[in-house]
Design a protein around this nucleic acid. Structure first.
Lengths: 134, 134
DNA sequence: GTACATTTGTGCGTATGTATG
DNA sequence: TCATACATACGCACAAATGTA
């Protein structure tokens, strides 16, 4: 797999495709460190900007998480717990605002479950840790 | 509201806060066009990079959508339809991959609802257009 | 259809700041 | 203390898409 700078698909999306494939196919496993941005750029022969944009795409997909000064690693999947909807409960999903994300200590690319109860009260849940059933 | 480049909060996050506030408070309404990146940069006295990162944050939150060659506008909320979970259905939420997002023609910042039926079949739904009940 | 101005997308270079180990 | 690595921010240039004259 390599980069074609004359392709219709932008270079950074090709980079994202390659790394995503590595994750989905299991060549990179949850908890694994990715190479540094500089190393990735060297390996693939593209600039840092393209690498950073590619990693941004994968962060937004919830596949990786980056720690400043440390590096980027494949995100581990939290265990889900079951949540049984009660009568009158309504559940929707949306992305958190950036301040919400910080407050709830969520990684990028993780949606919220918004649970509105019959009495009008609202709960915000990390979508990655819950599954809903009737 | 203006930008303090010596603040702890990054310039682009301050820009995002300002524009988000304009949207949440209704100064910018669904369907409204935002000023161009250049105009925003002029108005706020910051470079294009900070503007583009700020808009990237708001896109990831599902608040705005950008069309190349045209501009950026406040997203309109689609109407939700109710989906009643059947016995054996399990619903989770996650972000689409970039190829999924293109295939399903979703804006950035819109999660997927993953509906797994009792027989093992899986449905992917635009999270913005559904609400789940028991 | 053509041409044009506007606007965003992409990519690179440079510099400095900050968190981690 | 120090090297490494990512974050932020500015600048520039050109490509590509849009809407309009």
């Amino acid at each position: 797999m390599s980069i074609d700078s004359r392709s219709d698909r932008a270079v950074y999306l090709q980079v994202a495709d390659i790394v995503r494939s590595d994750i989905v196919k299991g060549r990179l496993k949850p908890g694994d460190d990715l190479p540094s941005e500089a190393a990735l750029g060297q390996t693939l022969g593209v600039g840092r900007e393209a690498i950073r944009q590619a990693l941004g795409v994968l962060r937004a997909e919830g596949l990786i998480a980056t720690t400043r000064g440390f590096g980027t690693r494949v995100r581990e999947r939290a265990e889900r717990h079951n949540l049984k909807l009660k009568r009158g409960d309504v559940a929707t999903a949306r992305m958190p605002s950036e301040p919400e994300r910080r407050t709830m200590d969520l990684d990028e690319g993780v949606p919220l479950i918004v649970l509105t109860h019959a009495d009008g009260s609202v709960e915000l849940l990390d979508a990655e840790t819950v599954e809903l059933t009737a």
